[in-house]
Structures are given as C-alpha cells and as structure tokens.
Design a protein around this nucleic acid. Sequence first.
RNA 1: GGUCUUGUAGUGAAAUGGAUAUCAUUCUUGUCUUCGAAACAAGCGUUUUAGGUUCGAAUCCUAACAAGACCGCCA
Length: 568
Amino acid sequence: MSIFKFYKAKFISSLTSQGFELNDFSEKLSVDIPKQEKFGDISFNAPLVLSSSLKKNPIIIAQEILDIFLKQFNEFQSIEVAKPGFINFKFNNNFWLNYLLQISDEKNLLKDHSKKINIEYVSANPTGPLHVGHCRGAIYGDTLANLLNYVGNTVTKEYYINDYGNQIHMFSKSVYARILEIQKSIKFDATSGLYPGEYIKDIAKSIIKKKLIISFENYDLIKEDLGKFAMQEAMVMIKNDLLSLGIKHDLFVSETDLVNKNNVNKAIKILEDKNYIYTGVLPKPKGDENEDWEPRDQLLFKSTLFGDDVDRALKKSDDTWTYFANDVAYHLYKLDREYDQYINILGADHAGYLKRLQACVTALSDSKVNFVCKVCQLVKLYKSGEPYKMSKRAGDFITAKELVDAVGKDAVRFMMIYRSNDSQLDFDFDLVTEKSKENPVFYVQYATARINSILRKVKVDNNQITKDDLSLLNSSYELEIIKKLSVWPKCLELSAVNLEPHRIPYYLYELSSMFHSYWNLGKENNDFKIVDNPNINLVKARVFLINKILLILKSGLSILNVSAPETM
RNA sequence: GGUCUUGUAGUGAAAUGGAUAUCAUUCUUGUCUUCGAAACAAGCGUUUUAGGUUCGAAUCCUAACAAGACCGCCA
C-alpha cells in the first residue's frame, strides 16, 4: 500500500476519533507529496477542506489538528502548519529505512478491489496484416491489460473479428484475382477497386499451396470457402504480428458467428421491448457534398436518448442488418458474460462511433454497467525530423512487422505508451535506436544492465540485513531515492484507476535518472563508489538499495512488456 | 455545419483541483575525466485568449481562436 493512502486513512481515523465529521469530505481530503522539499515528505489538506463547513480560519483548524497529531504520531521528525492551511510532515530517517527494508514490487496492490475486467483492443479487420496505425491502440490496450492484471484484477483480453459483410466479399474477390493471376496469368486490374496490397498475393499463394480449394474455375461456387480460408490466413498474419509485439489475446469473437447464432435478432428484440426502436427518416448529414442522398424510412435506434447526436440505422435498404446492428449484438454478448468493467480501445478514426456504442450498452444494460471507451490519437512516424515512409510497396501501408523489425519490440512498446493516449504521438526512428540519455528506452534498460553489472561484481548476501545495517545510507541522495521508490505504489494506482499507463514509463525514466546520477557521484567522490569501496558494510547497504531499484524497474518494465536486460 | 481530441520554455512533453508548474533537449558558461557508454551547477516561462466555479485552476464549466481526427445504409 502506498504511504499516502496509508496515512490518509490513519489521519482520518485519528481525526474522527477526536470528533471531526469527515464523512462528506473523504473525496476531497488528500495526503500528497508537496512539490517543494521544504514542505516536507507528505502534506495533508484537511484544514482547507474543512474551513468552510466549520466556519473557521484554516490556519486555526490546522493548529488544532497539529496538536492532536503531535500526541498521536511518533514517526515524524516534524509536523508543521503552512500558509494557506496545509499540514506538512517530515518523516524521521528511521521511517525511511524501515520502508526501504520492506519494499516489494506491489503486485496485487488493488487486490481488495479486484474486478473482473473485459478489455477489447486491436479488433483489426481480418483482411490483411496489422499496420502501424493499429500499433498504438494494440500496445495501449495490452499494457493496460497487463497493468490491471498486475494490480490484482482478472482480465480478459478480447478481439472482435469483423468477418462479415461487404469488405469480406471484396477481400475474397481480391484474393481470387491474385489466384487467377498466378495460375492463369490474368493480369490484376489495379483500377477494379480490389485490394492492391502485396500481402493478398501471399494469401493467394498460401491457399494454392495448402490445396484448400481444388478448383478455382467457378468463383460463385467457391467464394464462401475462399473468403473463409482467406480470412483464416489473414488472422494468422495478424496473430503473428501481434505476437511480434508481445500481444496475445485470450478470446476471439467472430461477427459471423454472432450473426449465424441469431444474436442480432435477439439484441434488437431487447431494444424493441424497451421501446428504443422506431421507423423514421434521418436528416441529411450537414457538410455532405453527395447529391445521391435521399431521405428514406428505416429502422432506427433511439441513441439520442443516451447522448448520441442522431439516431442510428439498424437496417440497410436491402433489409440486411447494418454493421452497427451486429455491434449491438456483440455488446449484448459481452454483457451476458457479466464483467465488472468493460474497456474498449478505439483508434482516433473510430472516435465518432463512441457515442452510439455507449448508447447501445447503456440501453441494453439499463445504465447498470461500467463501460469505458478509450481513444488513441494518431501516430506520426518521423526519421531525422522528416515524415517517414518505410514501405516500398506501391499503394501499401507500413506494417506493424516492419516497424518492429526496424526498431525492435521494446522500443515500439515503450514509446507507444510514453505519451497520454489522448495526445498525438510523434514516433522518431532515429531517437529510439540511439544509445543515449535522450532515448528513454535505452536509458531505463541501461539502468537495469548497469545494476546487474554491479551485482555481478559485488557478491553479498543481503538476506540477513537489518535496519541498523541500512543506517549507513545517510546521504541525501540515498534518501531521495528511497522516497522516489515510495511513490511507486501511488504511480501504479493512479495508472490503473485512471487507465493511464503512460505514467509508468515516466516514473521508470525518473527513477533510472536518479540511479544514474547516484552512480555518477562515485566519479567525483570515491566515498560514493558502490563497487570499489573499502567499507564492506556500506557496500552491502548500497547493494540492498540498488536491488530495490532493480526490483521496481523490472516490475515496471514487465507491465510494459519491455525487457530488462542484464547486459547490453 | 456537427462531434471528439489537443493547445504548457525555442523544441518535445509531465503534472488524482494544491503551495514558487516539472522533465528532457538546443545555446552560453564553469567543474570533472569514466566502479559500464558521462555527470553536476547556472541562465531563459503572461500554461492560446476572455469570462465563470473554488479557500485554491494548466487541470472543472462557458465562449472564442488554432491544430488534428471523424461524420450516410462502408466496416
């Protein structure tokens, strides 16, 4: 547990026992690290929060609280009242040494609030390999899944396969055209609107080679099988691409399956029974240049009841279900499996779809479900400051695999998460392959390698170490590192609760930076040397400290699924 | 026209509503020369603008401006 949470609870119970009414304020009360060192190690804002309801000057309240705390706590070196109405605490060194002694990786930090979570991410169409645009959402979703699992939840990683509808026909036709090209030298018509990508050829070759279909004479006879096999091939590609990023889903849900099992009718029936469906005419979208648009009666879902901008069509003019109708069925299927929380990772290009998804889930569940959509903004690739195009294939996109091949899994994963998902991200090829401080991936990994190197050189047994042994760690640098380590649980908790994993690489970078600085002290002053130091007891204590640093770095990197190398 | 996201040092970014807004980098200057690839110190900021909520706003609300993404019965 983080010391901040721990002391918040302690302070609240202490004050409650002294007659303070804090029930309404538990959200606003906070125990935090002050930005400035002179304000101590932790600060408490109760006087500011309470002043209006108690109708008292916060400073006066602070004095009262201070008197109570001075009697009750002995782990503080000082407790002070500060300007607007904070109470600032400074721990004694003993406290920090005890803290250092018991530092753990904080796995299962939030086990007490353990949830069953479903997280859907990637869900790329099964018509070709993963491209670079999918990477960010894929890594964001996967890191989030790791993180939520790490802190003690049960997480299901889900992939929804859109293996239904027109695009699949187009895909199937495209593969067929490539098969004809291979077998009968019928030239591929690039103007036909079929998918031009090279990978279509690979899929065609594979289908021929595996003899999945005997005769390709009559397309109409084989189109269903061909489409099925082609999608299977594409899914193999996608799964391989995901694997190269270190991603493995638990569950793949097929749209076709849902349609065939009558889930769409079932879902629409539910909405109908709740009176959320009607037949009506949608207005022409504004800003649309298309003159073919004609008003038409159609089956609509009242998504505007739930905050959407317009009601959404469920049936097309040929009386088949829309993609959205199938999605309603998919979400019903999700809800039926009863998770405590649903997380859905979308790319920026699907942000406009978010409201209707939220609407359908709200409608199906009567607002009873915790369903969160997170959108990842675009990634722009750069090389030497120039927008970068990697693929030579005409009309083709940059694939995830090409990106991983160029810079490695670790760099891709680290950098894709090194920014808030709401902000656009510039990904620079030169930077991530650079071996310098500017490259955060290198900098953090180098810290783990350096620590491992030290551990190889200094063989000490730290199992029996005591607080007294650690008391040799009395420099301000060492104390600062211990304090930084104490922030780790808070970082984990904030990341998990707010679904913001970007805090983790930032934290790891800062911790690495502190370690590197600490190491470099030994260059100017022999007393600070860790390895070549005549004081064996000091070496032992320092090795204990850097072991804890390594523990946290490794834990953090494991959540990111980035390697923590022992040598580089 | 609408919706969503973003707007913080020259550049790129952080910051559960907390106190004098951090970190990296560019440049100048000084110290040091490697227990593993350098480190340390110093200089530079109207958090886009205007209102509002609050004891307190980069953060929340409203409006404007700017950038990006999206917007039909495609998926």
